[in-house]
Simulated scan of single mutants.
Amino acid sequence: MLMIRLARVGARKQPYYRVVVIEKDRARNGRSIEVVGTYNPRTNPASIDLKRERIDYWTSKGAQFSDRVAKLVAQQPAAVAAA
């Protein structure tokens, strides 16, 4: 089963995340299939950069969101419409 979830990168106490498509039973930072975005919680407000067309493609193939990524995707259209 495929999941769209966060993979942590960045230095200690300075988190930065990649939004990745990955097999559900792989490790958090294991080999991913594709990077479909980034999330930086350290900026104010937090910066979210998602490739919506790739996310839509993978969800059509059966990939499911993790809880946190589902919230980020729900936030994203409002930010795009405001810009």
Rank of each mutant, 00 (worst) to 15 (best):
D56W: 03
G62W: 05
R31E: 08
K71V: 09
R31G: 15
T38D: 15
I33M: 07
A78S: 13
L6E: 04
L2G: 12
R28P: 05
N44F: 14
V73E: 06
D49T: 10
S60A: 09
Y57D: 12
R68G: 02
A74W: 03
R26A: 13
Y39R: 07
V20D: 00
G10T: 10
S60R: 12
L72C: 08
T59D: 07
V19R: 01
A11C: 08
L50A: 11
A27E: 04
N29C: 09
K61N: 07
I4W: 00
R18N: 15
S32N: 13
E34Y: 02
A7C: 15
R28T: 15
A70K: 14
R8G: 09
A27L: 12
L2T: 10
I55C: 03
Q75P: 03
K51L: 09
T43I: 05
I4H: 07
I55H: 10
G10A: 09
T43H: 10
V73Y: 09
R5Y: 01
M1W: 03
V35K: 05
A82W: 10
D56T: 03
D67K: 13
E23Q: 13
A70G: 11
G30Q: 03
P77Q: 09
Q76S: 14
V80P: 07
R31W: 02
R18F: 05
A79F: 12
S66I: 01
Y16E: 09
K24V: 04
Y39I: 08
R8E: 11
V36W: 04
T38K: 08
T43F: 03
N44Q: 06
G62S: 06
Y57A: 06
E34C: 06
N40Y: 00
Q64M: 08
P45A: 03
I4A: 01
E23A: 13
G62V: 06
Q76R: 11
R28M: 07
W58E: 08
Y16N: 07
L6V: 06
Q14V: 13
R28I: 00
I55F: 08
Q64C: 07
L2C: 03
A11N: 15
M3C: 14
R5P: 01
F65M: 07
T38M: 02
